[in-house]
Write a protein that binds this DNA or RNA. Structure first.
Lengths: 194, 194
DNA sequence: CGTTGGCTTGAGAGGGCTCAAGGCCAGTGG
DNA sequence: CCACTGGCCTTGAGCCCTCTCAAGCCAACG
């Protein structure tokens, strides 16, 4: 069974592959589609896959003891998403991942990723680079969480993630920045008045 | 020129190597010692190395526009430290790294790490695993930054990093948690009264 | 045209900040 | 052996940012 993988080359867009390699890749990436509002990973699920976003918008979030949601990550076109902590450590999901609009994803399983590493070693470097960048991005976020007021974090978010801002609700952004929707609303009002 | 690498096996402590592999490893790890208070990486340096802590205590920190320091990471025995953002992306350091006590480290250069990957492939998996764990730890820290009050973050820090707490000053911990020394002091008082 | 979801606004409370002062060592030199 | 010093931690007072809780607004939609 073969899914339509016509856009599979987007996943590794700066890399070139032999026909044989492409067929290997096509065999491990599977296209999946979701409706807006679907939970593609739920807390406590085992996490078999990581997902590449071909189209749509998603978020991963943590729900705390009081039922409040805290957004870890957004994903739009060309971003990867999963509960990576669970995915990496073979433990159960601590995050939920929901689609914020109808979305088309490629999924690849942990085992198939290892297989890819063996068959096409440069793909291991590719994923390592992705991880290194994600690590740096997280560090930057920690830094701004502990050193900058909410208004600056919001401005930085707008600048850095303009495309994402267009797809998501303000309360999603608030839960990403670690503030309430009310506070975000007041910050926006303040910024607009300048 | 050969440094004393008698404890090199600690670095990869659950792995086993052939004599030939050990000699490869010994050739790329170099022991370096620092006095308390030394800056082993300074802002704007090019970052050639990552460091394995054999003994001692270090911290990496960011200094903001107002001159305030924000601790990103501590390192004691068996931890790795560097300005990884700079190290990974071949850019200049945005962090300082200082020794909080006399310290003995192994350093390995970026090039030598690549070389190791080629010669001993399982070491690439080893470093990938380290990076995955560090990524998860950062995610956890982001989560607690945006969802928990300082007192809880402090308690969590004490529980998780008991060994580190013993080596560092309270104002280092405060700068790691993202609060002032005064606030930390009050939190400690509060906790002690229970 | 009422309901619902998302955003805004207001009032009051609280956690953490700033600034300023004081206390407690450990180390050092007379 | 003691006074002094500097580094570190604590305490206090006042303020500000963000939170909570509550209400109101508006556009979309069945």
């Amino acid at each position: 069974m073969k899914t339509d993988n016509s856009k599979i080359k987007n996943v590794f867009k700066d890399m070139s592959f032999s026909p044989k390699e492409i067929s290997i890749i096509e065999n491990v990436f599977h296209k999946v589609t979701f409706k807006k509002g679907d939970l593609i990973i739920k807390v406590n699920d085992s996490v078999e896959y990581q997902y590449y976003t071909l189209d749509g918008c998603l978020r991963s979030f943590y729900t705390d003891e009081e039922g409040k949601e805290h957004t870890i990550q957004f994903a739009i076109c060309d971003w990867w998403i999963s509960d990576f902590t669970a995915f990496f450590s073979d433990s159960n999901a601590i995050l939920n991942i929901e689609t914020l609009r109808d979305s088309v994803l490629y999924k690849i399983s942990k085992e198939d990723r290892e297989l890819l590493y063996k068959e096409i070693p440069k793909i291991e470097s590719f994923f390592r680079l992705k991880l290194e960048r994600a690590f740096s991005a997280f560090q930057k976020r920690i830094l701004s969480n502990i050193s900058k007021p909410a208004s600056e974090r919001y401005m930085q978010f707008r600048k850095t993630y303009t495309n994402i801002e267009r797809c998501v609700k303000n309360y999603h952004i608030a839960s990403y920045l670690g503030i309430t929707t009310e506070s975000l609303s007041r910050i926006r009002k303040e910024l607009a008045s300048k």
